[in-house]
Measured scan of single mutants.
Amino acid sequence: GSVVKEKKEKALIEVRPYVEYYNELKALVSKISSSVNDLEEAIVVLREEEKKASEPFKTDIRILLDFLES
C-alpha cells in the first residue's frame, strides 16, 4: 500500500520536468491508484490508458511508465 503510493508519488515528482500534462497525469495516477492493489496492476492499467491516449499525453504516460518500471 504505502510503498506503492510512495513509488508513484516519487515517480510523479521525477517526471514532472519532462511531461507536458502534469496535472492530467497526476489525476490519472490518482484515479488508477484507487482501483488497483499494487504497482504491477497500476502499470498494466497505465499501459491500457497509453494505448487510448493521443499525443502528447501518450508520451507523458510513457515517460511515467519508464520511471515506474525502472
Rank of each mutant, 00 (worst) to 15 (best):
K8Q: 15
K52D: 06
S70Q: 12
I13V: 08
Y18W: 04
L64R: 00
N23G: 06
E41P: 04
I43G: 03
V15N: 00
R16C: 06
K10H: 14
D66P: 01
F57R: 01
P17M: 05
V3E: 13
K58W: 02
D38H: 09
S30D: 15
T59G: 12
V19D: 00
I61N: 00
F67G: 02
F67D: 02
K7C: 15
E49H: 09
K7A: 15
S2F: 04
I43E: 03
E6L: 05
Y18I: 05
N37H: 09
I43C: 12
L65P: 00
A11F: 12
S70Y: 11
N23F: 08
R16Y: 08
F67Y: 14
V29Q: 00
L46D: 00
F57M: 02
K5W: 15
D38I: 06
P17F: 05
V4S: 08
K31H: 13
L28T: 03
D60C: 07
L25T: 00
V44L: 11
V4M: 14
K31L: 09
D38W: 09
L46N: 00
I32A: 02
S70L: 10
E20G: 07
S30E: 15
I32M: 02
E14V: 08
F57C: 02
R47D: 04
K58M: 04
E55D: 09
Y18L: 09
V29F: 14
A53D: 01
Y22P: 02
V29I: 10
E40H: 10
K5N: 14
V3Y: 06
R62T: 10
A11D: 05
S30M: 13
V3R: 03
V15W: 02
L39M: 14
A53I: 04
I63C: 05
V4F: 15
L64T: 02
E6N: 11
Y18F: 10
S34H: 07
K8S: 15
S2Q: 11
S35Q: 13
K7Q: 14
K5L: 14
E69A: 12
S2A: 13
T59S: 13
E55Y: 12
E41Q: 09
E55F: 10
S35C: 07
L65N: 02
A42G: 08
V29H: 02
R47L: 09
E14A: 15
F67N: 13
V15S: 04
S33H: 06
E14R: 06
V3L: 12
E41V: 06
I61C: 02
Y21A: 08
E6K: 04
P56L: 05
N23P: 06
K5I: 11
Y21K: 12
K58L: 02
S2T: 07
F57D: 01
E49N: 05
E14P: 01
A11Q: 03
L12P: 05
E40Q: 10
E6Q: 06
E41M: 07
K51Q: 10
E9A: 03
L28K: 00
E50A: 11
E20T: 15
E6T: 08
E55A: 10
G1N: 12
V3S: 14
E24Q: 08
D38L: 10
S35V: 13
K58S: 13
E6G: 09
P17H: 04
V19L: 03
E14F: 09
A27C: 06
L12Y: 02
L65W: 01
K51P: 02
V19E: 01
S30N: 15
E40L: 07
I43P: 00
S34E: 15
K31R: 13
D60R: 01
Y21V: 02
V29D: 01
L68F: 07
L12A: 01
S54K: 07
Y22F: 13
A11T: 03
S35N: 10
K51C: 13
N23H: 12
I63T: 08
A42K: 02
V45C: 14
L28G: 01
E20H: 15
E48C: 13
D66E: 11
S2D: 13
I13K: 12
D60K: 01
I43W: 06
A53F: 06
L46H: 00
N23V: 12
E40C: 08
L64W: 02
L25I: 04
S70D: 14
K26T: 14
L39P: 09
V36C: 06
Y18M: 05
L64P: 00
V45P: 05
T59L: 06
E20V: 15
A27N: 06
G1P: 13
I43L: 12
E24K: 13
N37P: 09
I61G: 00
P56C: 06
I43H: 03
L68M: 09
K10P: 09
V45E: 11
E55K: 09
L64A: 02
I61H: 00
S34R: 07
P17N: 05
G1E: 12
E40R: 09
K5A: 14
A42E: 07
L46K: 00
E14C: 15
E40G: 08
R16E: 10
I32Q: 02
K51G: 11
L65S: 04
D66N: 11
V3Q: 12
P17C: 07
S33N: 06
E50Q: 13
V36Y: 05
T59P: 04
P56D: 03
L64I: 04
L25V: 02
I63L: 08
K52E: 08
E69W: 08
I63E: 01
E24L: 05
E20I: 15
R16G: 07
F57N: 01
A42N: 02
I61V: 06
K5Q: 14
V36A: 07
K31C: 06
V29R: 00
I63V: 09
L68Q: 00
L65G: 07
V36L: 05
A42C: 15
V44E: 13
L25C: 03
E50Y: 12
E48G: 12
Y22R: 01
K5R: 08
L46W: 02
V44T: 09
L28F: 02
L68P: 00
N23I: 11
I13W: 05
K26G: 03
E69R: 10
V15Q: 01
E55I: 11
Y18R: 05
E49M: 03
P56Y: 07
Y21F: 13
E69S: 12
V45W: 09
K52T: 07
D38Q: 05
E55R: 06
K51T: 08
E69I: 09
E6D: 14
R47K: 11
V3A: 14
V19Y: 02
D66G: 10
V44N: 12
L65R: 07
E55W: 10
T59A: 11
S2R: 04
V3D: 13
L68A: 02
A11K: 02
S30T: 12
S34N: 13
S54P: 06
E40I: 08
K52V: 07
E50D: 02
L25G: 00
F67E: 06
L65V: 13
N23K: 05
V36E: 04
R62Q: 10
N37K: 09
P17T: 03
E48K: 10
K10N: 12
L39Q: 05
I13A: 14
I43A: 05
K10R: 07
I43R: 04
R47C: 10
K26V: 15
S70T: 11
E20P: 01
E49C: 07
E24G: 03
L25W: 02
T59V: 06
S34W: 07
K26R: 10
L64K: 00
K52F: 07
L46R: 00
N23A: 13
E9Y: 11
Y18E: 03
F67M: 05
D66M: 13
E14Q: 11
K58T: 04
L65I: 05
E48S: 10
K10D: 10
S54W: 10
G1W: 01
